[in-house]
Design a protein around this nucleic acid. Structure first.
Ligand code: ZN
Ligand code: ZN
Ligand code: ZN
Ligand code: ZN
Lengths: 142, 142
DNA sequence: GGCCGAGTTGATACTAGGTCTCAACTGAGA
DNA sequence: TCTCAGTTGAGACCTAGTATCAACTCGGCC
């Protein structure tokens, strides 16, 4: 079963219609190798208007099919990624995003909750760095 | 020495002029008890135009006088806060922001760097929860 | 005092990244 | 076939800024 079909089934299972517009958006997303900007996808994706592209991205984000990633300049990008709680490691040179399978703050939460009196409900974490490939390239050219 | 004077000296020490417009913006910021939106400050602050308010906020942010905080709905707010690396704990009910004196991820960075091959350069972290006051209020009304 | 030039200002236009509105359309089920 | 909730898209609108640029300010120098 293709990714497109799988996502379609997921949509149907939750009571959403799988329309031609939504198919077009999902196909355009799956065709992107790396992360993408919503506006860029809207321009690239004939078959769905801008509002529908944004709505579909939000829908897929809610479903856990895509993740929203904040780049180091603060601009948002989207990424086909695994669902469930996780964070990303973004290369500041080439933009490659790597999923992190563990949450780097979960361990500290109890301590922070105790010290602050807050009941911690959620968090947002992005990590920025230079990936192995970019570091190797820099080492060669240096 | 007032906060306003202290910040003015800091500006002068870095080669920036302390103009009436900047004084007005800084005074308006210091008058805010909690965090504030840049646009809201621009509306409230007679004595400086919108562009100058935004420019001054950015300047103060660069100087470490104010911090940018992402609320849980993603909207940015600013806060007079200490300089240096730190994070914030935001109450999702009343909006109170608490400075955290320790960085909750610094311990995990080495491990993540080793596992990923990335050289980690920075990160962005916000924590969300319900503060002690809001929890107490909820408990009473329940 | 007068002049210079860098720093600063603010009105306005512009941009990114979205959301809202609303009339038109679609399609699954009664 | 009728119905009506779900969906769509053009376009208006919104927030959070940044870019432009002519005008202004002011410290330093003659
Ligand atoms: Zn890279
Ligand atoms: Zn986490
Ligand atoms: Zn609170
Ligand atoms: Zn930190």
């Amino acid at each position: 079963m293709s990714d497109l079909e799988q996502i379609s089934l997921e949509l149907e299972a939750r009571g959403y219609r799988v329309t031609p517009s939504r198919r077009a958006v999902i196909a355009a997303i799956l065709a992107r190798k790396n992360h993408f900007a919503a506006d860029e996808l809207a321009k690239r994706c004939r078959g769905a208007g801008r509002a529908t592209v944004f709505r579909t991205i939000r829908l897929l984000n809610d479903l856990g099919v895509v993740c929203r990633v904040l780049m180091d300049d603060g601009s948002p990008r989207y990424l086909v990624s695994r669902s469930g709680h996780h964070h990303h490691l973004v290369c500041t040179e080439c933009g490659t995003v790597q999923d992190l399978d563990q949450c780097a703050v979960s361990g500290a939460l109890r301590e922070i909750a105790d010290a602050s009196g807050y009941e911690i409900e959620g968090h947002w974490l992005e990590l920025y760095g230079r990936c192995a490939a970019c570091r190797a390239k820099a080492a060669v050219s240096a």
